[in-house]
Structure formats: C-alpha cells, structure tokens
Simulated assay, not measured.
Amino acid sequence: MLERKIEARLKWEVENLGGLALKFTSPGMSGVPDRLVLLPAGRVAFVELKAPGKKLRPLQQKRKKQIESLGFKVYVIDSYRAIDLFVQEVMK
C-alpha cells in the first residue's frame, strides 16, 4: 500500500470527525511530521505517515522527540488499522 493512500484515508477520516488534517511544512526545518490534525474541542495532533513497514528517519525521530517534549502527541501511521486506532485515541 502506498503512503499517499494512507494519507488520503487519514484526511477523509479526520474530516468526517469535523476536523482538519492540514499538510504541515516548516520552511527551514526539515523532518517535521506530514500532517497537523486539528479536531473539535481544541484537540491537536501531529501525524507522520509512512508506507507499511517503513521507519522514521533519524531526523524525523529527533523532530518527534522535540515536539513531544513540548507536550504534543506525534503519531506514526502506516496502515488503515493505525488510522482506526488513532481516531479511537484522539476521540476519547
């Protein structure tokens, strides 16, 4: 399965929850997560999308730790099942 199919599904699922899955880029800072997810009631999450079985690159791991050290959750999603688990967690 291609990463872009997983990304499209994530976007669709988030929009069905009334949220936004914004493409996230940060000029001058490589390795940031792919999507900034904004959900009702002020819930925010960062999502890095990967093809099934692919791992974070070292710089992505560093950015994940930096963002999480500020109190934000960074999810790594590599399957439709991982999207389902993400939705369950963020909608608690």
Rank of each mutant, 00 (worst) to 15 (best):
L2W: 11
L2F: 15
L2P: 11
E3I: 02
E3W: 14
E3D: 12
R4Q: 15
R4N: 13
K5Y: 10
K5V: 09
E7Y: 07
E7L: 15
E7G: 15
A8M: 12
A8F: 04
R9E: 15
R9H: 12
R9Y: 12
R9M: 14
R9C: 06
R9W: 01
L10Y: 08
W12F: 13
W12Y: 12
W12C: 01
W12L: 12
W12S: 12
E13V: 01
E13K: 14
N16L: 14
N16K: 15
N16Q: 14
L17Q: 10
L17H: 06
G18D: 08
L20Y: 13
L20C: 04
L20I: 14
A21R: 05
A21K: 09
A21D: 07
L22V: 10
L22I: 14
K23P: 01
K23Q: 13
K23A: 10
F24D: 04
F24G: 08
F24T: 09
T25L: 05
S26R: 11
S30H: 11
S30E: 13
G31N: 08
G31R: 07
V32N: 10
P33Y: 11
L36C: 09
L36A: 09
L38S: 02
L39E: 00
L39S: 00
G42E: 09
G42V: 03
G42P: 00
R43H: 08
R43F: 01
R43P: 00
R43T: 02
V44K: 13
V44R: 11
V44M: 07
A45L: 05
A45D: 03
F46T: 07
V47F: 04
E48T: 11
E48D: 06
L49W: 02
A51D: 02
A51M: 09
A51E: 12
P52N: 05
P52Q: 08
P52I: 04
P52K: 06
P52R: 06
G53L: 07
G53T: 08
G53I: 07
G53R: 03
K54C: 03
K54L: 03
K54V: 07
K55D: 10
K55M: 08
L56H: 04
L59R: 11
Q60A: 06
Q60L: 03
Q60W: 03
K62H: 08
K62Y: 06
R63C: 05
R63A: 07
K64E: 10
K64W: 01
K65Q: 12
Q66F: 09
Q66G: 01
Q66V: 08
I67M: 02
I67L: 12
I67P: 06
E68N: 02
S69C: 02
S69Y: 03
S69G: 02
S69R: 03
G71I: 01
G71C: 00
